[in-house]
């Protein structure tokens, strides 16, 4: 058999594949399937972008569940990192600020130059640490430095004002609302929010 005959025979064989057609009626269902998908696409366009990103693209058939799983996983991951970071920052701040077993909370009074109106406070410190009965406030926030007020980190101690102490009546060289505790480094300061009577 020469090359031309071989080619012709091969073409005949390949033409047999033209007869491989789906059963009758298949293309009617096919048409429905196409337009179902198109409607899904149109519905998808009306969804907000963040919902599309989070829940995936419903019109992409099999790929959609994986896409939404990846998106949902990334959201959970980001949230997890954020929560872990929050606890880590809170924990490390607490360790640093609670490092002294007992801190006498004599600090300069707020108001910069004038005497404090709160004369004596009492703090309820975390169980492992006793800060003494002198410092009071709704919360204490340790700052990286006295001048960096907006970057305060939360500190978990809860306290309330009780009675006047002379130390708070002294002049406070720090910005308003910040106090430096005895024994802390020069770069540390605490913000105290008083809740009790200011007398």
């Amino acid at each position: 058999m020469n090359e031309q005959e071989s080619n012709e025979r091969l073409r005949q064989l390949l033409r047999l594949k033209r007869l491989e057609t789906p059963p009758p009626g298949y293309f009617n269902r096919f048409q429905d399937g196409v337009f179902d998908r198109i409607r899904a696409v149109e519905a998808e366009r009306s969804r907000s972008p963040w919902r599309r990103w989070l829940f995936g693209h419903r019109n992409l058939g099999g790929a959609a569940p994986w896409l939404s799983l990846v998106n949902a996983g990334s959201v959970v991951g980001v949230l997890g990192v954020a929560v872990a970071g929050w606890f880590w920052i809170g924990g490390s701040t607490g360790e640093e600020s609670l490092a002294p077993a007992s801190v006498a909370a004599a600090a300069a009074a707020s108001g910069g130059t004038g005497p404090s109106t709160v004369s004596r406070v009492e703090m309820q410190a975390p169980p492992a640490v006793s800060l003494g009965p002198e410092v009071a406030g709704l919360g204490l926030w340790k700052t990286a430095g006295p001048a960096v007020v907006p970057s305060v980190a939360p500190w978990s101690a809860q306290a309330k004002a009780s009675r006047a102490i002379p130390e708070f009546a002294s002049t406070n060289p720090l910005p308003e609302g910040l106090f430096r505790l005895p024994g802390s480094s020069g770069s540390e300061a605490y913000r105290v929010r008083f809740t009790g009577p200011a007398n």
Binding site: L19, E20, T21
Partner: peptide, 10 residues
């Protein structure tokens, strides 16, 4: 299996 082969037509 689910295709409709009809060689008798050719």
């Amino acid at each position: 299996d689910d295709l409709d082969l009809q060689p008798e037509s050719d």
